[in-house]
């Protein structure tokens, strides 16, 4: 009986990684800045994105969004109220978005006509970290009600982020949010990362966030 070892050295997510690279090339060539928004369910990704889309559009930017959910198109309908083109991706049980789903839902959109494309991932702090969607910037969101040590509990995701957004800052006092501790947790996992402290209700922190988006888009060109 002969046995032999066959070397493969192949990424398990090779297909996703290849497609994500291809998407990144397309996004860069079209001049659209693509962001992947990741958080737990309930952090306020959709509310934050609603406000972001609305304010960017008021400033004359061309924006679009893809929004991932297991079921329902509730979030897409909420976001579409901003007037921006929005498409829902229903994963039907899959706990994260994959590059193929993004690619498929972009069909028919002229990327060169966009300045910003936001991809709202499925609410989950574990699985989305492994799947590259071709984005330029991965944004990890955390609300003041979730516990300041969330980044320490989910280091894989927070370490892979390029920017962090703290949401619901308007109710920070009511929930005894320890700001210094939260910032310390983020810095332990991703030292030096930009952190935005925001409220989608009052608009706090949105000006800094929008400035950051403009800088990142200019830097991509």
């Amino acid at each position: 009986m002969t046995t032999r070892i066959v070397e493969l050295r192949q990424g398990i997510l090779k297909k996703n990684d290849e497609l994500a690279r291809e998407l990144r090339g397309r996004f860069t060539a079209a001049g659209v800045l693509v962001l992947n928004l990741v958080s737990s369910p309930g952090t306020g990704k959709t509310a934050f994105l609603e406000r972001t889309l609305r304010e960017l559009r008021e400033n004359g930017a061309r924006v679009a969004a893809l929004v991932g959910d297991l079921e329902t198109d509730n979030d897409a309908r909420r976001l579409a109220a901003s007037g921006a083109p929005v498409r829902q991706i229903n994963t039907h049980g899959i706990c994260h978005l994959e590059a193929e789903m993004v690619s498929r839902h972009l069909e028919g959109w002229e990327l060169a006509d966009l300045d910003y494309l936001f991809i709202e991932n499925v609410g989950n702090l574990v699985c989305p970290s492994s799947y590259d969607l071709g984005e330029r910037i991965r944004v990890a969101l955390l609300s003041v009600t979730e516990g300041e040590d969330k980044p320490l509990k989910y280091p894989t995701l927070f370490n892979s982020a390029d920017a962090a957004v703290i949401t619901k800052i308007d109710i920070a006092a009511a929930v005894d949010f320890d700001r210094a501790l939260a910032l310390q947790s983020i810095d332990a996992i991703r030292p030096g990362i930009r952190v935005f402290e925001t409220s989608s209700r009052t608009g706090a922190g949105m000006a800094e966030w929008l400035d950051y988006l403009r800088q990142q888009r200019a830097a991509q060109k």
Binding site: T2, R4, I5, V6, Q10, G11, L13
Partner: peptide, 13 residues
């Protein structure tokens, strides 16, 4: 530390 890789397989002919 982010690797998800199939290194090798052992097969029997």
């Amino acid at each position: 530390g982010r690797e998800l890789e199939i290194e090798s397989i052992e097969i029997e002919d």
